[in-house]
C-alpha cells in the first residue's frame, strides 16, 4: 500500500450518527470504573466509626478533618516528594534503557538476538516477592540500602522486561523503507534511531512511561525493605504507616489513598494527550 498516495486529510469530524450510542456506552463503562473510586473519595469524608456503623451510607455528617489530618501532616508532602523523585527517575531510566535495548532487538539481526530477548523476558516470569530478600541483601552489600538509588535501580531493572516486550514490536513495525530512506540520505543507523524512529514512537514510549510511572508510584515491597529512614519513605509506605499508627483507620486510609493517587493520574492525563496526538498523518511520503 503506497503511503504516499493520499494527501494529508483534515482531522476526523465527530461522527454525527451513532454518537448517542458511543456516549451511552462510554458513560456506562466510565461509571463502572469510577463509581467504586467515588466511594473511596467519599469515604475520606467520614470517620472509621461511621464506616463501621453504616458502610454503604453517605457521609453524615461530612467530616473534613480526615482529609485535613492527612494534608497537614508534613510527612505526607515529603512522601509525595520522595515518590515523585523515585517514580520520575525510574521512568526515565526504564524508558532510556528500554528503548535502546528494544531498538537493537527490533531492528538488528545478529546471532543470539532471540536469546537476548528471552534473557530479558525471563524477568517477567519470576514473582518479585521471592527475589526481594536476596535483592535486599545485595543492596546492603553495595551500600545502596536506605538510598533513593537503592529503590530506583532495581525498579528500573524489574520494569525492563515489560518495557522491552511492549516496545519491540512497535519499533519493529516501522517499514524498512523508512530506514533505507534515512540511510540513503547519509544518516547512519543511530541517527536514524535518534532523529526519526524515536519521535515516531512517541505513543509507545509514552505508554511504557505511564506504566513504569504507575508501577513505581504504587510499589510497596521494595521501598518497604530498602528505605529505613522515614524521611525517605514513599507514599505506599506512608499509607501503611498511617494505617498502622491510626489503628487501621479505614477512613484515614481512604482519604490518604485518594490524595495519593492524584499525581499518578495527573501524569497519565498529561501523557495521554501524547498517545492520542501520536501519529496522525505523520507518515508522509
Amino acid at each position: 500500500m503506497a503511503l504516499t498516495a493520499l494527501p494529508s486529510t483534515p482531522p476526523q469530524r465527530p461522527f454525527a450518527w451513532g454518537s448517542p450510542i458511543t456516549y451511552a456506552l462510554a458513560l456506562a463503562v466510565a461509571a463502572v470504573s469510577f463509581a467504586p473510586v467515588v466511594y473511596v473519595i467519599l469515604g475520606g469524608f467520614r470517620t472509621t466509626g461511621q464506616l463501621a456503623a453504616d458502610p454503604a451510607g453517605l457521609p453524615n455528617p461530612w467530616v473534613w478533618h480526615t482529609y485535613a489530618d492527612v494534608i497537614t501532616q508534613s510527612r505526607f508532602w515529603s512522601q509525595v516528594l520522595n515518590s515523585t523523585i523515585v517514580a520520575l527517575s525510574t521512568t526515565l531510566g526504564v524508558v532510556v534503557l528500554g528503548v535502546c535495548a528494544a531498538f537493537v532487538l527490533a531492528r538488528y539481526r545478529f546471532r543470539g538476538r532471540e536469546g537476548l530477548y528471552t534473557f530479558f523476558t525471563i524477568g517477567l516470569l519470576f514473582p518479585a516477592a521471592a527475589g526481594i530478600l536476596p535483592l535486599y541483601l545485595l543492596l546492603r552489600d553495595l551500600d545502596l540500602a536506605n538510598t533513593y538509588l537503592g529503590v530506583i535501580i532495581p525498579q528500573v531493572a524489574f520494569q525492563l522486561p515489560l518495557t522491552i516486550v511492549i516496545l519491540r514490536p512497535f519499533l519493529a513495525a516501522f517499514p524498512m523503507e523508512l530506514e533505507d530512506a534515512a540511510l540513503i540520505d547519509g544518516a547512519d543507523r543511530l541517527s536514524f534511531f535518534w532523529r526519526i524512529l524515536l519521535p515516531l514512537s512517541r505513543p509507545a514510549l509514552v505508554t511504557v512511561a505511564v506504566l513504569a510511572f504507575v508501577a513505581s508510584w504504587n510499589a510497596f515491597l521494595l521501598p518497604l525493605l530498602v528505605l529505613q529512614d522515614e524521611s525517605l519513605h514513599t507514599l505506599p509506605l506512608g499509607v501503611q504507616n498511617f494505617s498502622a499508627e491510626h489503628s487501621q483507620d479505614t477512613a484515614g486510609i481512604l482519604a490518604f489513598t485518594s490524595l495519593a493517587m492524584m499525581p499518578a493520574l495527573l501524569f497519565f492525563s498529561l501523557a495521554e494527550r501524547q498517545i492520542v496526538g501520536g501519529l496522525q498523518g505523520a507518515v508522509k511520503g
Binding site: 461522527f15 463503562v29 489513598t257
Partner: peptide, 21 residues
C-alpha cells in the same frame, strides 16, 4: 467525541489505584 479525554482517564483510574486501596 467531546469529553473523550475525561472518559479515558476515568477508565484508567482503577489501574492507578494502589492495591491496598
Amino acid at each position: 467525541f467531546r469529553g473523550r479525554s475525561v472518559f479515558r482517564l476515568l477508565v484508567f483510574v482503577p489501574y492507578v489505584l494502589s492495591e491496598v486501596t
